[in-house]
Design a protein around this nucleic acid. Sequence first.
DNA 1: CGTAGAGTTGACGGGAATCAAAAGTAGTGG
DNA 2: CCACTACTTTTGATTCCCGTCAACTCTACG
Lengths: 234, 234
Amino acid sequence: MSTSLAISRSAASAVDPAVIGRSSKHQSDFKAGCERTLSTTGSVLHFAPDREIYGEGDDADTFFKIVSGVVRTCKFLSDGRRQIEAFHVEGDIFGFEPGAEHRLSAEAVSECTVISYRRRGVERLAASNEALSQQLFSYAMHNMARAQDHSLLLGRKSAVEKVVAFLIEWADHAPRSATIALAMTRQDIADYLGLTIETVSRTLSQLERDAMIELSTARQIRFRDPAALRALNA
Amino acid sequence: MSTSLAISRSAASAVDPAVIGRSSKHQSDFKAGCERTLSTTGSVLHFAPDREIYGEGDDADTFFKIVSGVVRTCKFLSDGRRQIEAFHVEGDIFGFEPGAEHRLSAEAVSECTVISYRRRGVERLAASNEALSQQLFSYAMHNMARAQDHSLLLGRKSAVEKVVAFLIEWADHAPRSATIALAMTRQDIADYLGLTIETVSRTLSQLERDAMIELSTARQIRFRDPAALRALNA
DNA sequence: CGTAGAGTTGACGGGAATCAAAAGTAGTGG
DNA sequence: CCACTACTTTTGATTCCCGTCAACTCTACG
C-alpha cells in the first residue's frame, strides 16, 4: 500500500459518490486503476488560487488527480481571449494527453491539492494491463463527449440557456442540497460559457427576479424552482 | 488480404497523405490497425446526400470508415437547433463510441461510401493487441483535442475569424492548390461555426471584396491572399 | 422554360458586448 | 474596531455585431 493510495482513499471517502455527476463512473474507474497499479511521483502538490499548474505547450510528462479544490483547464487566443474547457473537481483526472505537450493550460480555481503521476509509467503499465488501458480509453472518450456537449452549448445556446446549463451542471458537483457553492468567479463562468462577466451577472439577476434562484451571496446560489430551470435547459 | 483492405488501399492511394491535415497521423494509424486485424461486417455502404447514417441514441454497435465522400457528425437541441461537431473525409473513422448509444448523429454531406466495422470485434481484438488499443486511444484523444479546439472557436471567435478558420481548416483537406472545393452547403458551414447562413454568406462576400478570396462559384473558393487569411486566424 | 433549392443582399431589430460607475466584499494595518 | 484599499459583482447607458425577416439572384434539373 503506497502513500498515494492512502491519500486517495481518504480523499474519496470525503465525498458522496452518488452526487459527483455523470463523469463519476469513468473517472473513478480510471482513478481506481491508477491506484491499484501506480505509485505517484512522490509529490502531493498544493496550489494557491489562480496559480498555473501547467501551461499550453509545457511537457506533458505528468498528469494529475485532484485531492481537493477546483481546477480549470483552458485555451487562449493570441490576444488573451480565454475559453475554459472544463472545471475539474475532487477525484477528477486532468492533464493526461497523447502528445508530448499539453494542449491546454491548467490553473487552480480555488486553493487545491493534487497528486501527480508519471505518464510514462501509466503507459508502460497499460501495455500489459488490459483493465487500465480500457480505463484510459474510457477517460479519453468521456472527455471527448464532454467537449462535444460543450460545443453544442457554445455554438447554439442563448445566454440564459448557457447560464442555466452551467447551474444545473454544477449542481451535480455539490452535495444534494438546494444550495450550490461556486468556487469560481464570474469571469471564470463567463469564459466557460463564451459570455462576458456582465452578461453572466445580469442573467443571474434576472433568474433571481424570476424567482428561479436566490443569490444568498454571489457565490451561494439556491434553487427555488428546479423544474423551471430544467425546462430552460433545452 | 481481405476485400476491405484492397478497397482501403486504393482509396488511400487516391489522396496525397501530406495534405490530409493534422488528423492524418492518428487516423491512418488507426485505420491501418483495423485493416490488419479486422474483417469488415461484409458491407460497403453508400449514402446519398443528407441521408442519415445513424442517429443520436442509436445502437453504437458499428462504426465506420469513409472510402469516399464527406460525412458530418452533429448534435441537436430539442427545438431543432443544430451543432455540427465535425466534417469527416476520406480515410477518417467516425462513430466509434464508448457507450451503448451514439451520442451524435451522422449524415452524408455528399454522395458517399463507407465501410462498417463491428465495434465488439475491435474491442475484443484490442484486449490482446496492444498496438490496436493504442490506436483506439489515440483516436479518442485526437477527437477530444479537436473538440476542444472547436470550443475555443465557438466560444471566443468573431464571425470573420470563424469563417477564416473554417477555410484554412478545409484547405488542408484539399489537394495543395489555391482553390478549395466545398462539399457542404452554407447551412452546414453555419451550423459548424455557430452562425447563420446569412452571416456566413456576408462574411465570404466581404472577404472577397477585401481581395482575400475569390468565389469562382459558391462552392469553389480560391485563396488570393493566404498570408492575410492566416493573420486573421488568431 | 419553369420550378425548387441554394446563395446573396438589404433593411431592421435585438441580444449580448462594451463602456462606465456604483455597490458589495474581503483583506490590511493603524 | 474601523478606515483604507483592492477586487469582485452588479447595474446602467450605449453600441454594435450578428440574427431575423424578406426579397432577389443564381444554379440545377426535369
